[in-house]
């Protein structure tokens, strides 16, 4: 079984994506042996009112509810965001909440970001932080969002000790620094941009944070799924229990998807 924690539905304004609705993504998942995917709405990143993107996401995945685990996107600068967050958590049973401060025009360490992080922690849900959607060297003229900085991550991790973090599409994470910031046991990192063999990124993170910190992620539909399947195959040498944690069990536990 595989659970993919790095997946998105909807349109991306700067490049055509295939497999951008739930029905097409189920086909992609079936062809790649992926059982379930944690998904958030790309439309919610770019709409002024992010919650409209959440509504579209919930509608889109409704017919495929056994395959998708929904994530709400919150814009704490927008009117009524607390109400929208409550609806997503209470009515739609989202399992995590994503924040995209670079796209929504705030910082995780300003008053907006702090309020959002506190609310997410109050609901007992993990916050999803995507380091970047695509490489800046190919960016569209209107794409001005900067990559998430690790120092900001470490800062908010220390400031919110009860909050759990889902770190999507990251590279350059230093395991000991994350552990020092108190993230051991309260973060889950996908390996879409990490190396298993050459730089041993995954082994280094496991050494610092435990195998419970790593999960399968592909960054679909932006990226091919094959690279992450190859990485998973490269992890076959791990004890079977650890392999299964990375393939799906860590995601299931962290997201409490059977609750």
């Amino acid at each position: 079984m595989i659970i993919d924690i790095n997946a998105f539905l909807g349109h991306y304004p700067f490049r055509q994506l295939h497999f951008r609705n739930a029905a097409k993504m189920v086909e992609l998942m079936d062809h790649n042996g992926i059982d379930r995917a944690l998904v958030s709405s790309l439309n919610a990143v770019f709409y002024r009112d992010a919650h409209r993107g959440n509504q579209e996401l919930i509608e889109d995945i409704h017919a495929h509810s056994s395959r998708f685990i929904p994530v709400a996107t919150v814009n704490p600068k927008y009117a009524g965001w607390q109400h929208d967050l409550e609806e997503a958590v209470v009515s739609w049973k989202v399992k995590a909440v994503t924040l995209v401060p670079a796209h929504h025009g705030y910082s995780l360490v300003d008053a907006y970001g702090q309020a959002a992080l506190e609310s997410i922690a109050d609901y007992g849900l993990p916050v999803v932080l995507t380091q970047r959607f695509e490489d800046r060297r190919q960016r569209h003229h209107w794409d001005i969002a900067e990559d998430f900085e690790i120092k900001t991550l470490l800062q908010v991790a220390q400031a919110h000790p009860q909050l759990r973090f889902l770190l999507i599409n990251w590279i350059g994470l230093d395991g000991p620094s994350l552990a020092e910031a108190g993230l051991k046991g309260r973060c889950l990192i996908d390996f879409a941009r990490l190396h298993v063999l050459l730089r041993k990124d995954v082994a280094k993170l496991i050494a610092a944070l435990g195998v419970e910190a790593i999960a399968f992620g592909s960054h679909m539909p932006f990226d091919y799924v094959g690279p992450s399947l190859v990485k998973l195959a490269d992890l076959e040498s791990l004890p079977e229990a650890d392999y299964e944690k990375i393939a799906w069990r860590n995601a299931a536990t962290f997201l409490r998807i059977d609750d």
Binding site: I2, E27, E236, A247
Partner: peptide, 24 residues
């Protein structure tokens, strides 16, 4: 849904193709 590791590896090892209807 709870395929074990053997089943997962079998699935990964099976022949694959991207989805032609989505491609140019």
């Amino acid at each position: 849904m709870n395929r074990n590791r053997r089943e997962t590896l079998k699935a990964i090892g099976a022949a694959a193709v991207a989805i032609s209807s989505e491609l140019p």
